[in-house]
């Protein structure tokens, strides 16, 4: 590599050709090339804040969840009301669900002093937003069934958890079918 190879010679030659072509054009009279660019340092100084989150302050911590965890019921009646299940992306009541709802209905008729909460849930396969609406709709469907058969709407509150509170967090058909549900929780005894 002490002597330039053919490629290097060709390169140098081409540089000379181009350089000649370029130089011969020369700067045009009055072109800004001959002047220093007019560019004094800007006088205004911006000073962005030091804070990391652009001025956002976090909330103070809330000590404990005010909401009873899903699936929890109060008192001795825990577990007497059974969960109903739905098909993917559906909120119509299947025959099995109607059977369960009729049993829940009898209990509510026999125990008129109790208030319940119906929780609507979805499997993880939908979008977060739509699942919130779908879970809500499943709870509403169950409430409508009970109200039409004589249960006072005042005794039933509903809440949707969308896909946020699965009973089985695995990603399988059997887990999903368990998660598409409406749960019935006894929340309080009415004071008379």
């Amino acid at each position: 590599m002490n002597r330039p190879d053919r490629f290097t010679w060709a390169t140098i030659l081409s540089v000379m050709v181009f350089a000649t072509a370029f130089c011969s054009r020369g700067p045009k009279p009055g072109s800004p090339e001959t002047e220093a660019p007019v560019f004094d340092p800007p006088s205004a100084i911006e000073e962005p804040g030091e804070e990391e989150a652009g001025g956002w302050t976090a909330e103070t911590e809330v000590p404990a969840e005010t909401l009873p965890p899903p699936g929890s019921s109060s008192g001795d009646a825990k577990g007497v009301l059974k969960t109903i299940y739905f098909d993917f992306d559906r909120y119509n009541l299947k025959p099995r669900a109607i059977e369960t709802l009729n049993n829940n209905l009898s209990w509510l008729k026999n125990n008129p002093d109790f208030e319940i909460r119906i929780e609507g849930h979805c499997d993880e396969r939908g979008t977060d937003e739509y699942n919130l609406a779908l879970g809500d709709r499943r709870a509403i469907t169950a409430r409508e069934f009970l109200v039409k058969r004589g249960i006072s709407a005042n005794r039933i509150r509903i809440i949707s958890f969308g896909e946020e509170r699965p009973v089985d967090s695995r990603h399988s058909n059997s887990a999903w079918s368990k998660n598409r549900r409406a749960e019935f929780l006894i929340v309080s005894k009415l004071s008379r």
Binding site: S31, P32, E33, P37, V38, F39, D40, P41, P42, S43, A44, I45, E46, E47, P48, G49, E50, E51, E52, G54
Partner: peptide, 23 residues
């Protein structure tokens, strides 16, 4: 174009370097 298009000056501490660069 051989032109100066923009000139800016910023002042800040170590904690604001990223936001200066973003600006």
């Amino acid at each position: 174009g051989k032109l100066a298009m923009l000139g800016k000056r910023y002042r800040g501490g170590v904690g604001s370097l990223r936001s200066i660069a973003h600006k």
